[in-house]
Every structure is written in structure tokens, then in C-alpha cells.
């Protein structure tokens, strides 16, 4: 029996013709089809751009000095005020096995340079853009925070924030208190934005980029902070990833385990160490141990969701700063 005759046989009941006729709809206007093609075309073009590979470079240098990574201005690259993210179900898809940090590099070349890192980040832009739109009264993140000298145990923190910026913290014993700190804001350029403020940002990558610092490293760390811990919606996250994809010096390493043993892809910004002004004047020792390059922090990204599941100051040894996200998302209640 062919499929066609099967169809006839299935629709062999009184009223089947009426049923089939009731399903008739006019074809969509041509501009609807064109719009669908236009929606996909930029993504296909971006991906097609990233088909050329660059050589593998082995990343072997530990990250930072004892005080943890700092920007030129001395600000910590790690967000201190709040952390975000991830449901357990949204973790990286298990792969065959972790590897020891083979890194593909954008190569410090201009944006259009094709590389595996660019392709990966553009894919994360796609994945993020296709995620569900935000819903719920509060943004919640439940995470393990390690921030201090080796030996100090990480603490479990749960933070809630509403759209206006009001925040609540639940301590490990389950007690919830209104936060005494302004933790529900996110730095974008010189401004600090609430959840509502983030929603006002443009989602065109070029226009969005203009809101961030011109300095590559400062821009990268602000964007990664948003991707890591903010309730940015799917389109904004997609645009943020697209900016990162065009950032020279971004490296990636696939199939790396985070501190919980979850496999993800690590990205970081490979850059020259910034001269310490005080050290240059002979008033203090350099804050960074020696190195010609500073590579941390490292961000573990779950390829299936585009979410940052962990950030750490050091892939090797004992990091001084590490945030491990256990659960993140929108919720309608606190507690």
C-alpha cells in the first residue's frame, strides 16, 4: 500500500471532505516568506564566513598572581555583586572526554577572520537568540562562590532580583533578606543598568557595541559579565555573543571540565599584561607575577544553551576566584 492510498483510506469517513476543506488557508504574502529567508540569511552568512580554520595553539600558562585578575584600572574582572545562572538540565552535553586545553585562537586578527572560536561564538549567538523569552517576576541565580585565599570553602548563594533592581539574598540556611547592596545592576559602559534598563539596549550588535567601552578588554569583561549573570533576553544575549565573536584575542577550548565535572567550552581573552602604573614608578611590585600575557578569567559555556556555567581565575591549580552556577532562571516567587 502506498502512502497516498493510505491517506485516502484514513480519510475514508463521513465528513472527511469537510474536514479537509476547513483546513484551507491562503498562502502567506510573499513578504512573509522573504522575511523568513532574511531572518536566516545573516546567520548562514556569518557561519559561512567562519569556515576557514586557524592553527591550533596550546594554552599552557596559568592565569594570574595571588590577588586575582585585575583590569588596567584595578577593577576586578570578576563580577562581585551578583552571579547568575543555569538549570542543572541546561548543562553541557556530555562528550567523549575532557581534553587538556587545546585552544583555537581568533588570532588577534580583525573580526572577519574565520576561526573555530568565531564559529563557536556565532553558534552561541544562534542558540541564545532561539531561547525562550523571559518570563517570571524575579531573576534568580543559585551558585557556589569561591572568593578568597586557597583553603577557604566556597559558599552557596541564591540571589533574586526584580525588574526595578530590588534584590533579595537567600542564605545557606534558607533565610531570605532584602539585599543591603545594590546587586541588581549591570555595568554597561559608564552606566549601571537594572533589568528594565537592559531591556532598553539595542539588539543590533553594531549599535549595542557603541554602549560599551572602546577598550577591547574592558568591553569583553563587561559583556561576559552580562552573559554570565544578567537576565538579558535572548536577542540581547545573541547580540552580545556576536560582539564577542568579533573581538580579537578571544580563544576557546572545547570539552573542558569545570569544577563540577561538567563538560563545556572555555573561552578567554588572550592579551598582553597591562603595565602597573605604580610598578612602573617603582612604588610597588607588579600585581601580575611575570608574564608577558594574562589569560584569565576563563568562562565555561554550555554549548547547548549558550549559558556560562562557571567562571574561574585559573584553569590550573587552585583559583582565587571562582563562581559555579547551579541553577538560574526566572521565577515567580522568592524562597
Amino acid at each position: 500500500m502506498t502512502e497516498r492510498s493510505e491517506r485516502d483510506e484514513i480519510l475514508d469517513f463521513p465528513g472527511a471532505d469537510q474536514l479537509v476543506a476547513a483546513g484551507a488557508v491562503a498562502p502567506p504574502p510573499a513578504d512573509r516568506i522573504a522575511a523568513a529567508v532574511d531572518l536566516v540569511t545573516p546567520r548562514t552568512e556569518r557561519e559561512a564566513e567562519g569556515t576557514t580554520t586557524t592553527p591550533l595553539i596550546v594554552l599552557g600558562r596559568p592565569g594570574t598572581g595571588a590577588e586575582g585578575p585585575r583590569t588596567a584600572s584595578g577593577r576586578s574582572r570578576f563580577p562581585r555583586r551578583r552571579r547568575l545562572l543555569l538549570t542543572a538540565a541546561a548543562m553541557a552535553v556530555p562528550a567523549a572526554g575532557a581534553v587538556a586545553y587545546p585552544v583555537l585562537d581568533v588570532g588577534g586578527e580583525p573580526a572577519a577572520t574565520a576561526s573555530a572560536a568565531t564559529r563557536f561564538l556565532n553558534e552561541m549567538a544562534e542558540v541564545s537568540g532561539a531561547a525562550s523569552a523571559p518570563h517570571g517576576k524575579y531573576w534568580m541565580s543559585h551558585y557556589l562562590s569561591k572568593d578568597g585565599p586557597p583553603g577557604r570553602a566556597p559558599v552557596t548563594v541564591t540571589v533574586y532580583s526584580d525588574r526595578s533592581g530590588k534584590s533579595w539574598i537567600r542564605d545557606p540556611k534558607g533565610k531570605v533578606a532584602v539585599s543591603g547592596h545594590n546587586i541588581a545592576d549591570w555595568r554597561v559602559g559608564h552606566r549601571r543598568l537594572s533589568w528594565d534598563g537592559l531591556n532598553q539596549l539595542p539588539t543590533d550588535p553594531q549599535k549595542l557595541k557603541a554602549h560599551f567601552p572602546k577598550n577591547t578588554a574592558d568591553r569583553f569583561f563587561q559583556i561576559m559579565s552580562l552573559l554570565e549573570e544578567s537576565p538579558a533576553g535572548p536577542r540581547l544575549r545573541s547580540a552580545l555573543f556576536q560582539i564577542v565573536a568579533k573581538t580579537p584575542g578571544v580563544r576557546m577550548a572545547p570539552n573542558v571540565k569545570d569544577s563540577r565535572g561538567r563538560l563545556g567550552t572555555v573561552i578567554n581573552l588572550h592579551r598582553r599584561a597591562e603595565p602597573d602604573p605604580k610598578a612602573a614608578l617603582g612604588k610597588s611590585k607588579p600585581s601580575v607575577a611575570s608574564p608577558a600575557y594574562v589569560d584569565g578569567p576563563y568562562y565555561f559555556i554550555a554549548p547547548r544553551t549558550g549559558r556560562v556555567v562557571e567562571s574561574t581565575s585559573d584553569l590550573h591549580g587552585k583559583p582565587t576566584v571562582r563562581t559555579t552556577y547551579l541553577k538560574v532562571g526566572w521565577t515567580d516567587r522568592i524562597g
Binding site: V25, P27, P28, I33, V37, V40, T41, T44
Partner: peptide, 22 residues
């Protein structure tokens, strides 16, 4: 294939739009 994907859109968009329209 990302480039060929656009052809899929053109080929199936009308039927899939109809699915939602119904």
C-alpha cells in the same frame, strides 16, 4: 549546510506558515 539552509526556508515556508495559520 548553512548556505543551503535558505533553500529549505523557501521550499517549506508556505506549508509551515499554513500549519501555524490553522
Amino acid at each position: 549546510d548553512p548556505v543551503a539552509f535558505a533553500a529549505l526556508v523557501e521550499r517549506h515556508a508556505t506549508d509551515l506558515h499554513g500549519y501555524f495559520a490553522r
